[in-house]
């Protein structure tokens, strides 16, 4: 579709060649590039596997030789057998479900409110000036300290976890959206005004698209923070959830279970991050690739 035929090419002035040979999308131009990229990807994946293996061996050696306090020195094998047992008795699944439900609710809720408030503040500078110190103060508060408050207020169910996680996600998304809508280029606005853009046009066609990369990045970060907030709240007190499991096994000195759950959480975070990155790439396909 985007091929420039030979005859059209000749009508182009030579000085006007597009940057990078791959751009006119001639089939020869693109193929080697993709191959090169996949070869690097392969290398990256292989190196990552090696790192994981090295780390597992180090962990195993530490446990085997008791290089740290015996109560902490649990081997990967012990963690693995806990994991298998916990999957079989359903304990892992029901608690992971409880955690993820709270994560999703907090993330969706706080992101929606954060985007709306952030954009509003971005568009109303005076309003923003009034609220800025209060927002900064609220954001500077150690959120984990609010956990007891939320637990007393909402009980040990899902609401307390959602509340705590939301206070984290909200501010992340808010500041990104606020900065995002303000980053519109003055020339775009000047041109749009002369071409007859109304305020709503400027909002939908310039300010919102220009804010999208920042907002998406904050949503990705927000998802991870939602997980941190929920698990933090569960650690303090909750009826279920992975954080609650960690707290329980810690008190029983069953560190192999704690390690297993921590690794599971890390795995969940990686998967969530990858999913969000894929969505970002799809929505931001108009952006030049990072190596451009």
């Amino acid at each position: 579709m985007s091929q420039i035929t030979a005859s059209e090419q000749s009508t182009h002035r030579q000085d006007d060649a597009p940057p990078g040979a791959d751009v006119p999308a001639s089939s020869q131009g693109r193929q080697p590039r993709r191959l090169r990229v996949s070869r690097t990807t392969l290398l990256v994946r292989a190196a990552q596997l090696v790192l994981v293996a090295v780390w597992l061996v180090a962990w195993d050696l530490t446990a085997r030789n008791q290089w740290i306090t015996p109560v902490l020195a649990k081997s990967p094998k012990q963690s693995w057998s806990y994991l298998v047992a916990a999957v079989e008795n359903g304990e892992l699944w029901s608690n992971a479900q409880a955690t993820m439900l709270a994560v999703v609710i907090a993330w969706v809720l706080a992101s929606t409110v954060g985007v709306v408030v952030g954009i509003t503040l971005g568009l109303l500078p005076t309003f923003e000036r009034i609220l800025a110190p209060f927002l900064d103060a609220a954001n500077a508060m150690p959120r984990i300290a609010l956990a007891p408050f939320f637990i007393v207020a909402f009980g040990i169910g899902v609401q307390a976890k959602v509340a705590l996680a939301s206070t984290l996600v909200f501010f992340i998304v808010l500041s990104a959206s606020r900065a995002g809508v303000r980053s519109a280029d003055a020339e775009w606005l000047r041109l749009s005004a002369v071409l007859g853009a109304k305020k709503r046009h400027l909002f939908w066609k310039v300010m919102l698209p220009v804010a999208t990369p920042a907002i998406l990045a904050s949503l990705r970060l927000g998802l991870i923070y939602a997980l941190l907030g929920v698990v933090g709240s569960e650690l303090i007190a909750a009826e279920d959830g992975l954080g609650q499991l960690i707290a329980e096994y810690s008190s029983l000195f069953r560190l192999e279970a704690v390690y297993a759950i921590l690794l599971l959480l890390a795995g969940i975070a990686v998967v969530l991050n990858q999913v969000m990155a894929a969505i970002e790439r799809r929505l931001l396909r108009w952006q030049p690739p990072a190596d451009h």
Binding site: D185, E187, W188, R190, L191, S192, V194, L195, G196, A197, H201, K205, V206, P209, V210, T212, W286, Q287
Partner: peptide
């Protein structure tokens, strides 16, 4: 009126086609 600036002021999230359509869309 038509308006042109030193910097092209193309919107990066629109294709070449989409950018040409921009003014028409506003009108």
């Amino acid at each position: 009126l038509g308006f042109m600036l030193a910097r092209d002021a193309l919107l990066p999230w629109r294709t070449a086609q989409g950018n040409v359509e921009y003014g028409l869309e506003l009108r």
